[in-house]
Design a protein around this nucleic acid. Structure first.
Lengths: 182, 182
DNA sequence: CTCAAACAAGACCTTTTTAGTCTTGGTTCT
DNA sequence: AGAACCAAGACTAAAAAGGTCTTGTTTGAG
């Protein structure tokens, strides 16, 4: 071996402050985009229907992505879809009845702090007498409770009104300088 | 050299039905193993020193992994290390002063619900007037508070005493039926 | 009655993150 | 001197997440 390759490893190594990304309670973009979409829809009381394309154009997120998310939300009964040319999505239940907990589970699957319990023969190497699982469950319960007590309405109300330029019709006047160039 | 323990390691086992993995508040194994190690150490008041090898052997987790974690914990002042043949690690502060929040941050990095900040030129597509960020921050604050209010001592106390077979000296009597074969 | 715009669904690819292994070096007790 | 530690980092493999592409169906408008 000729010498040591001293490549900087961005993960793991660096002193104390080299951390890169947040985790814990970091919802994936599904939740993120889902919230954005619902927020957008609720903020336009006049127009009860919103297309995935509109959300995609307004916020610059991938059409397919937002599409999938809205489809999931339709399956779980949060929105209803309208087929056809001038179709789209519409809220099908008041957001005051939708907890953040439920919303997240819809998009990200079952939530929990620990998943020692598995389908395999042995649940987990240490689980049979794992001293960590039990107290974690308790913590988990508390966090979940917090999420259950927060409705999307609460969340959006705290956020204040949607800025005007998000409400403008994309067709009416595109505020983005860059042309679609399609 | 036929190397190290070839344990099956079924932690995080096979894909379950439907959703594959839990997220949200799912700590990585770092936190998991870190807790196990600290728990192990606190449960043996007589023996104030514990080697990484001992933890690794007792719980069947990779020696290198647990080693790295303990090294990190040393860097952050939770444990102190003792070099040499009969060296190891020892708690260097009471766990009643260590919040779960701090512990997790030590091992996983800064925590938070949202990271709109992107590596690109713009921080985030919607961040400048994102209606979702603000209320999320509030939620985040609550969750973090919960983690801050829980100390590792609380966590372990709730868990009850460590089963006896985890306390036995590995050298004294190996409780595992399968021989090390090396 | 055709076309454009929308929903619907799923296969596929790319990147990032995580878990785990390997190597080398240094310390201290016996 | 050697065994049993800690210490630090590079490297590899596997998994997850994010994103794209493709194909099909419905429906309103011209």
């Amino acid at each position: 071996m000729s010498g040591f390759h001293r490549r900087p490893n961005p993960l793991w190594g660096p002193p104390s402050a080299g951390f890169k990304r947040q985790k814990l309670l970091k919802f994936s973009k599904k939740t993120d985009y889902g919230l954005i979409a619902l927020r957008h829809m609720t903020a336009r009381p006049g127009e009860s229907i919103t297309s995935a394309r509109e959300v995609s154009d307004t916020y610059g997120v991938s059409y397919e992505l937002i599409s999938k998310i809205l489809q999931t939300l339709k399956r779980t009964g949060v929105v209803a879809s309208v087929q056809g040319a001038s179709g789209g999505y519409r809220l099908s239940r008041p957001l005051s009845t939708l907890s953040l907990f439920d919303f997240i589970e819809m998009l990200e699957g079952p939530q929990g702090v620990i998943d020692c319990a598995r389908a395999g023969s042995e649940p987990c190497l240490v689980s049979s007498s794992c001293n960590v699982v039990m107290p974690m469950r308790e913590l988990n319960r508390k966090v979940m409770k917090l999420l259950q007590e927060t409705t999307l309405e609460d969340l959006f109300r705290e956020a204040g009104p949607l800025p005007a330029h998000f409400l403008a019709h994309p067709a009416a006047e595109p505020p983005v300088p860059e042309a679609a160039a399609k």
